[in-house]
């Protein structure tokens, strides 16, 4: 039971994160929001690695495309804060679900990033349509 609570709490904290980052948009430009969001979390993570894991920090030995992750982080935080400020966190998160489901299906279908190929089946289509209807209700209802 406790793990169910943990998972709901993970979602609750993510919801808080998106809403609070959106609120920062009332005071800062989009890139400044990105700066604070990543810098504050980075300091905490650095302290965790330094004092808990007690190992030196190195970033060698990763494929080159992994270094694009910071650019993606900036784009994601700035766009989510921008959208949250204009359409609200609920609509932003619901629409994001559509994007996540579509991109997951494409990644699985083609087996990108060395993932196991899982071809898209037509029988999955009603699930996607149901989610789409739900999102439309959240956004326009």
């Amino acid at each position: 039971m406790i793990y169910f609570v943990f998972l709901v709490l993970a979602g609750v904290f993510q919801g808080f994160m998106i809403s609070l980052n959106g609120q920062l948009g009332n005071y800062y430009s989009l890139f400044a929001i990105c700066f604070f969001v990543h810098a504050i979390a980075g300091v905490f993570l650095y302290l965790y690695i330094k004092f808990k894991e007690k190992k030196p920090i190195t970033f060698r030995g990763v494929p080159k495309y992994v270094y694009a992750v910071g650019f993606m982080g900036v784009i994601m935080v700035s766009t989510s804060s921008w959208c949250t400020l204009h359409i609200g966190a609920t609509a932003m998160l619901s629409l994001s679900v559509i994007g996540q489901m579509t991109s997951s299906a494409i990644v699985d279908h083609y087996g990108w990033f060395n993932s196991t190929k899982k071809p898209f089946r037509l029988k999955q289509l009603p699930c996607y349509l149901l989610v789409l209807v739900g999102v439309l209700i959240v956004v326009y209802g």
Partner: peptide, 9 residues
């Protein structure tokens, strides 16, 4: 917002 979800994956 949809593009954000796309990039998220």
């Amino acid at each position: 917002a949809v593009a954000n979800g796309f990039l998220n994956t």
